[in-house]
């Protein structure tokens, strides 16, 4: 299942050498109760860079990206997103959430709103956009994820893959500079994974800064500038997809790759 899409040719990095950092994480630590879930995690993501985070369950990869838009609060270290440091200050939090879009494993569409309303909600209430403009924008993105004809339906009437594409369109409607994906294909049936991954590849080709938690190795090979491997709360190894998958240095990554390839 880890190679649901054929690893096409790498779509080529657009990261310039002098690109400003989009995300800076410096020695971030976090605990759930007494459990140490992020251990001195340091990770820089440049503007336009695509990073895939992988690792076994419980490795802290989801917690890591949820810290970036403060759905979880880190307890030590610094996180700077687009020049804004994450603090308790609500204004910096507002600024960051406006620039960072997020796609969840379980879609989290709003069941009481139509697809179109799901997409226009944040532009209207956060970006203060006129409704007509927000709707035009939403239709543009819905067309991009190839489901404009579903705009008047409710989430419950769509398939999982369609829902996840709506969730991507919903996040894009805020015109974010960075997109976070938290295992976007894990809750999907195999035949729907491809449609979502295709959408994500398209997004990458447009130069979006992306941080994806995923085990889709084909996707990583095709898109990622860098793969980060986490285990038990720490970053064990990182590098280009080719280096990571063909010449893993640590035993832990070797073990992980062998388990993934066995088709877990």
């Amino acid at each position: 299942m880890s190679d649901t899409i054929e690893a096409g040719p790498h779509i080529g990095s657009v990261v310039r050498a002098d690109a400003p950092p989009a995300i800076v994480m410096d020695k971030v630590n976090k605990w759930f109760g007494a459990l140490h879930v992020l251990r001195d995690v340091s990770l820089n993501v440049a503007l336009g860079e695509r990073v895939v985070v992988c690792g076994p369950s419980g490795s802290g990869k989801s917690t890591l990206i949820r810290c970036i838009n403060r759905l979880e609060q880190h307890q030590e270290g610094r996180i700077v997103v687009e020049g804004n440091e994450l603090t308790d200050d609500l204004r910096s939090l507002d600024a960051i959430r406006r620039e960072v879009g997020m796609v969840f494993q379980s879609f989290n569409l709003f069941p009481h709103l139509t697809i179109l309303e799901n997409c226009t909600l944040a532009p209207i209430w956060v970006r203060k956009m006129p409704k007509a403009e927000a709707e035009a924008l939403a239709m543009e993105y819905l067309e991009r994820v190839k489901i404009p004809e579903q705009a008047k339906k409710y989430p419950g009437q769509l398939s999982g893959g369609q829902q996840q594409r709506v969730a991507i369109a919903r996040a894009l409607c805020m015109k974010p500079k960075i997109m976070l994906f938290d295992e976007p294909t894990s809750a999907l049936d195999p035949e729907m994974i491809k449609e979502v991954l295709d959408t994500m590849v398209g997004l990458a080709a447009d130069g979006m800064t992306m941080v994806c938690v995923t085990h889709e190795m084909g996707f990583a090979r095709q898109v990622a500038d860098r793969v980060v491997f986490m285990d038990r709360g720490e970053i064990v190894e990182s590098g280009t997809p080719t280096d990571m998958f063909e010449t893993p240095k640590t035993d832990r990554l070797k073990l992980f790759l062998s388990q993934i390839l066995r088709g877990h």
């Binding site: 007494a34 140490h36 251990r39 076994p56 419980g58 494993q105 295992e183 294909t185 085990h215 285990d231």
Partner: peptide, 22 residues
């Protein structure tokens, strides 16, 4: 897919566990 568990408990951590600050 997210249910891959790695049997690496025996491998020493690079960053040892610390008690939280509070």
């Amino acid at each position: 897919m997210s249910d891959i568990t790695l049997g690496t408990a025996a491998v020493p951590l690079t960053t040892p566990s610390r008690t939280p600050p509070v």
